[in-house]
């Protein structure tokens, strides 16, 4: 496997570990500070970078696409195509250009966010209630002002829904990326797949799941924070 460590030496510092134990808590605590904790932090920032860059690109593309139908269908087709590429092949494709690096991983991960973020942003911009747009026109706002001051804020629930899906998607795909550049929680997962050390398999696997679940909760919280009106509306209706 490209980029994975040539020799994998799990750290067996937990003295009380039976060799055939399914899960050894001592190993987990002994390796938390040196291996698991840092991998977890790495995993989070790998995800953040990809989603933030993906969001910037998608917002820009959606704003352009809003008034240009040809660009909307073109970009959507392109993003759909990117989305169907098996992730490992995508990461490997950029290795000759950007090497076994974080950049290679981020190119792949960012590409996978585009479909979800672009589609949701565009749908959000397009489905703003007619009454809101008409009220803005009545107040004399220009089309550009309507786009940025009315449509974009009202598209937030849809955009946040897109962010939610792309965050969990990127967390999942980032584990696979570790087979190309050993970063994040995918590194201990791949190490353990080779050594068949079940404590490490379970620790890294469960931590990745916890990161995904926690991220999901955080995004839902942010969603409520930035779109308080959706809850009020639901309560009154």
């Amino acid at each position: 496997m490209i980029g994975s460590p040539t020799q994998v030496i799990p750290i067996f510092e937990g003295p009380q570990c039976a060799p055939d134990a399914t899960f050894c808590w001592d190993w987990f605590t002994a390796n938390w500070g040196t291996l698991l904790g840092p991998s977890l932090v790495q995993h989070i920032y790998i995800t953040l970078i990809a989603v933030v860059i993906g969001l910037v690109i998608s917002l820009g593309a959606a704003l352009v696409a809003f008034s240009r139908g040809w660009f909307a269908s073109g970009f959507l087709g392109f993003a759909t195509f990117l989305y169907t590429i098996p992730s490992l092949a995508f990461f490997l494709m950029f290795v000759p250009i950007t090497g076994l690096s974080l950049t290679t991983i981020e190119i792949g991960l960012t590409s996978y966010t585009l479909l979800l973020l672009f589609r949701n942003t565009l749908t959000g911009l397009r489905t703003v209630p007619r009454s809101a747009v008409e009220a803005a026109e009545g107040m004399g706002l220009t089309p550009n002002q309507i786009l940025f001051r009315i449509r974009l804020p009202l598209a937030l629930p849809s955009i946040m829904a897109g962010i939610r899906i792309s965050v969990v998607t990127v967390i999942s795909l980032a584990t696979v990326a570790a087979s190309v550049a050993p970063l994040g929680l995918g590194k201990p997962i791949f190490d353990a797949i080779h050594t068949l050390f079940s404590t490490e398999l379970i620790s890294a696997g469960v931590l990745t799941i916890l990161v995904a679940l926690a991220a999901d909760v955080v995004v839902v919280f942010l969603q409520r924070l930035v779109t308080p009106w959706t809850r009020t509306a639901r309560r009154t209706s």
Partner: peptide, 11 residues
């Protein structure tokens, strides 16, 4: 939907 596929495979 949040469960990373590779994590499920590892566990």
């Amino acid at each position: 939907r949040s469960l990373p596929t590779l994590a499920i495979i590892a566990i």
